[in-house]
Design a protein around this nucleic acid. Structure first.
Length: 435
DNA sequence: TCTGGGGTCCTAGGACCC
DNA sequence: TCTGGGGTCCTAGGACCC
């Protein structure tokens, strides 16, 4: 068997996948707790109040586009009375858990694909029941969580994505679209720009357009060799899926992360080494917290700093990757070498905009190699201390305990000027009901 | 004044080994 | 005039996703 066919081998039998996608998820989360926003345009901004990451159809209707910097749409905000929010990840994360746990009650086979999407396997379900099942799921999620969802159902994950696209946009389907017949698939794919397909990014779309391929149906008719050469096996898999041959299985078990990033843009430019050290020390803390949460240890860390590339001012960026002596999840084991590296790469006189760390070479605790010369993380006090710290922070809120090297005042912290309350995860910010 | 953050996978090319 | 060949491992960079 050639490597091409084994890479993209289709599963036999007929599969049915549903993609459940929360509508403009972050904006919907905000609406749940402020129902008066129901028919008003709502946008949610990225970290640092940078650009638009989520927006309701009403906001799209007045010409706002996802990804646009906030300062460029301020005039529209005022003119159309748009509600604006800073990202509130504690809220969205918690709302996501609610949606997903509801889904797992409704179906035994669920893959949580992202914060606002899940795939379900509906293999074996009667075709005639699919629409009503979809409607039932929609109603249940809406009722139990307040979040509106759209559902696309088809024979492959990629086609379920396509179906979901239709469910979201064509009102008459009321949020559920089933696309199983070949003729329907052909009709829908012919009307779908190739760049809107899951897995075909802007680069590939451009390549395809340049040879005259503009819709998704044309892509399915293309020669396999061309696809493989220009779009790798990944692209070929996508095309097979569009042809109705399932190549991507439902992944129900969550794999531990292979890299963990923590980085932020600063609220205001940072010039001093001292503040940069505080920031990266905080990022090391956050990243190792995630590392411990998934029961992992790591041995590599990369630290970087950069000035603002959008500005016409002296630019400087640098990074350094460090290999630690042994696998660990203890913050100081990372903070110490990272601080040394940062001190060496720091240049005075620049306005730094962003810094970050990335942890890699991650393994599960159980499989940590035994080292003759280095004490192992699990056997010494470091793991016990961190377990204790993590428990306290879990119980009393993150950052109840943290390292002094992270700074106390944190003048460099990001801007979040339009933050809503953490209605679901903080006792002091619960929704108040008027008596 | 103001342009996000966090991930995955694939490939090509170099280093190194026998 | 000739200058192996194949395997493996690692890394950087590119492309994609939400």
């Amino acid at each position: 068997m050639s490597s091409i066919s084994s890479d993209t081998q289709a599963r036999s039998g007929s599969n049915i996948f549903a993609l459940i996608d929360c509508n403009h998820f972050y904006a919907s989360c905000e609406r749940v707790f402020q129902p008066e926003l129901e028919n008003r345009p709502v946008v949610v901004l990225s970290n640092n109040d940078g650009c638009v990451v989520a927006l309701t159809p009403e906001a799209k209707g007045v010409g706002i586009v996802r990804g646009t910097p906030y300062f460029k749409i301020k005039h529209l905000i005022k003119k159309h009375n748009i509600a604006v929010f800073s990202s509130n990840y504690s809220l969205y994360g918690d709302m996501s858990c609610r949606v997903m746990s509801n889904l797992s009650l409704l179906s035994p086979e669920v893959e949580i694909y992202s914060i606002d999407e899940a795939f379900l396997s509906l293999d074996g379900m009667d075709r005639s029941e699919l629409i009503s099942y979809g409607q039932m799921v929609r109603k249940a999620i809406r009722k139990n969580t307040g979040i509106p969802v759209s559902i696309g159902i088809a024979n492959t994950k990629t086609l379920a994505k396509v179906a979901n696209h239709i469910a979201k946009r064509v009102r008459e389907h009321s949020g559920v679209f089933v696309m199983l017949e070949d003729s329907l698939r052909e009709e829908v794919l012919k009307g779908m720009p190739v760049g809107d397909i899951w897995g075909v990014g802007p680069r590939n779309a451009k390549k395809l357009n340049s040879i005259g391929i503009t819709n998704a149906w044309q892509l399915t008719q293309l020669d396999d060799k061309w696809i493989r050469d220009k779009m790798t096996v990944v692209g070929l898999r996508t095309v097979e899926e569009l042809r109705g041959n399932s190549c991507l299985d439902l992944e129900m078990v969550k794999e531990p992360k292979k890299s963990i990033i923590s980085s932020r843009s600063f609220g205001t430019p940072v010039e001093s080494l001292e503040h940069l050290l505080e920031a990266v020390s905080t990022y090391c803390w956050i990243a190792t917290e995630k590392l411990r949460e998934q029961g992992s240890l790591a041995r590599r860390i990369l630290v970087y700093i950069t000035t603002n590339r959008f500005k016409e001012e002296p630019q400087y960026a640098n990074y350094k990757e460090i290999e630690l002596k042994a696998y660990t999840a203890y913050p100081p084991d990372f903070i110490t070498p990272v601080s040394d590296a940062l001190t060496k790469m720091y240049r005075k006189g620049y306005k730094y905009k962003k810094a970050g760390v990335m942890i890699s070479d991650i393994i599960q605790e159980e499989s940590a190699p035994y080292d003759l010369f280095e004490p192992s993380y699990n056997d010494d006090k470091r793991s016990q201390v961190m377990e204790c710290v993590d428990n306290i922070n879990k119980k009393w809120g993150s950052h109840t305990i943290y390292f002094a090297s992270s700074g106390i005042k944190k003048e460099w912290q990001m801007k979040r000027e339009m933050l809503s309350n953490r209605y679901t995860t903080n006792w002091n910010e619960l929704l108040k009901v008027k008596a």
